[in-house]
Design a protein around this nucleic acid. Structure first.
Length: 202
DNA sequence: AATTTACGCAACCGCGGCTGA
DNA sequence: TTCAGCCGCGGTTGCGTAAAT
């Protein structure tokens, strides 16, 4: 049995207060991100590290865009989802200022319905018009076996199958050329090298 | 105006990979 | 090589609020 991420009974749960937010912001501005497990104690927060990390990444980070998604963003999400499936973090990585949680929520609450209304199955490949080359780094052979509860990517990519930490894997292989697979996908010219939203803005 | 329903979003939870001892 | 702890990801849940009745 895996032990729960935080067993402490005195940890807060539920919505964050403004004071808690401020403490977290102050601490990270001073010390930077990282060491999430020890952060709550150091910052004087009654939260588990995981919760702090999530709050920071999804809500407090200064480079977050927030607000409605533009049509171009929505379009990009649809195309990336067709390519990557439910790899929200990867998709969010291509959308500066957006988080995986935000993209996931937007997909589930808006885009999914929209596609259904258009007569498209959001879980099936949607055929798109013209084609563009996309290079994707190959993953470890073990990637083939797993998985998975994960949705299949809507576009079949022979050696790119669900892997939880695909982004890490891809980072090292994407641009090498020798390991990359070439697939056809409409309107996209993506070099899927991982870039954090922060870096993307820079 | 009060109640019910639907929706959107923030937060939680569990899984699994990575890393260092 | 093994194991424990940390971290990140994706799925799910629950709450607040707008819309409908």
């Amino acid at each position: 049995m895996r032990k729960p991420c935080c067993e402490k009974k005195d940890t807060n749960k539920g919505a964050w207060s403004k004071q808690e937010d401020q403490k977290l912001i102050d601490y990270i501005q001073k010390h930077g991100e990282g060491c999430w497990n020890s952060l709550p104690q150091a910052a004087g927060l009654r939260r588990c590290g995981k919760s702090c990390r999530q709050r920071w990444i999804n809500y407090l980070r200064p480079d977050l865009k927030r607000g409605n998604f533009g049509e171009d963003e929505e379009d990009l999400i649809i195309k990336l989802h067709a390519l990557l499936g439910n790899r929200w973090s990867l998709i969010a990585g291509r959308l500066p200022g957006r988080t995986d949680n935000e993209v996931k929520n937007y997909w589930n609450s808006h885009i999914k319905k929209k596609l259904i209304l258009m007569g498209l199955n959001p879980n099936k490949p949607h055929r798109l018009g013209s084609t563009t080359t996309v290079n994707i780094g190959a993953t470890k052979s073990s990637d083939h076996e797993s998985n998975n509860q994960q949705q299949e990517p809507n576009v079949l990519v022979s050696s790119f199958q669900g892997h939880k930490n695909h982004n890490k894997v891809m980072t090292g292989t994407t641009t090498t050329g020798t390991n990359s697979n070439t697939i056809n996908l409409p309107d996209l010219n993506l070099d899927l090298t991982l870039c954090t939203p922060t870096l993307a803005l820079a």
